[in-house]
Amino acid sequence: MITPVEVGTELEPLTVRFTRETLVRYAGASTDFNPIHYSERSATAIGLPGVVAHGLLTMGSALRLVTDWVGDPAKIDNYRVRFTNPIVVPDDADGATMIVTGRVTGVDGDKVTIQLDAVCDGVKVLGAAKVDVDLGR
């Protein structure tokens, strides 16, 4: 069990980098071949500022902050987010960087609630991101 856990405990921040290669690999693994994830023309045609990362890739990558902290993904009871802004991934070697931070907002025995904040280029990309964890599992 992770100790001590109390309301206000901050998790170590996580930095995640997305490149066009990341998007191609995720598209293959998820079979989500929507052209907004690889074609500038398709993305801008529907009003996006450019090629964007898959929402579930963004969501799953942010959850790594908690799974790394608890050491076992099976301890996750619930995870919910709102997608507030897409991550635009430029066609260059650097890509886009998401910074994920988290803090404990509730503790009830072994049950812990963690709020995540995910930001890319100073813009919040996930809103209302909450993770419920069972540390006793």
Score class of each variant (00 low, 15 high):
V66N: 06
T97D: 04
C120N: 12
Y79Q: 12
D117N: 03
C120S: 04
T105P: 07
R25P: 08
T113N: 09
G28A: 01
E21D: 13
V5K: 04
R80D: 11
D108E: 12
Y79V: 13
V119M: 10
K124S: 03
S39E: 07
T9N: 10
T44G: 01
R103G: 00
D121G: 06
P73E: 01
V66W: 00
S39C: 06
V88E: 05
L56Y: 12
D117T: 15
L135A: 11
L56N: 09
V104D: 04
R20A: 05
T101N: 14
K75C: 02
Q115G: 06
I76T: 02
T3D: 07
F18T: 12
G60F: 10
I2F: 10
T22W: 15
T58D: 08
K124H: 05
A27Q: 11
D110W: 04
E21R: 15
P73G: 02
V119K: 05
P13D: 00
T15C: 13
L126E: 00
D108A: 13
N78V: 06
G136D: 03
T9W: 07
V107T: 08
T22F: 07
H54Y: 03
T84R: 09
A96W: 07
D134F: 07
P49K: 13
V70P: 01
T97N: 00
P73K: 06
I46T: 13
I36P: 00
V51Y: 04
P35Y: 14
N34F: 11
R17L: 02
D94I: 09
D134S: 13
L14W: 01
R82S: 08
T105I: 15
A27C: 08
R82M: 13
R41C: 03
T3G: 03
G95F: 05
P90E: 15
I46G: 00
L65G: 03
R20V: 11
T44D: 00
K130N: 11
D108V: 01
D110N: 13
T9P: 00
Y79A: 13
A45D: 10
D121F: 15
Y38P: 00
F33L: 09
L23K: 03
N78Q: 15
P4V: 10
T3L: 08
Q115H: 12
A27D: 13
K111C: 01
V51E: 08
V70C: 05
V119Y: 06
V5E: 12
A62Q: 05
V24S: 00
T31P: 02
M59I: 06
G136M: 00
A53N: 03
R137W: 08
E10S: 02
I46A: 00
F33G: 03
M59T: 09
P73L: 11
I99C: 12
D117Y: 07
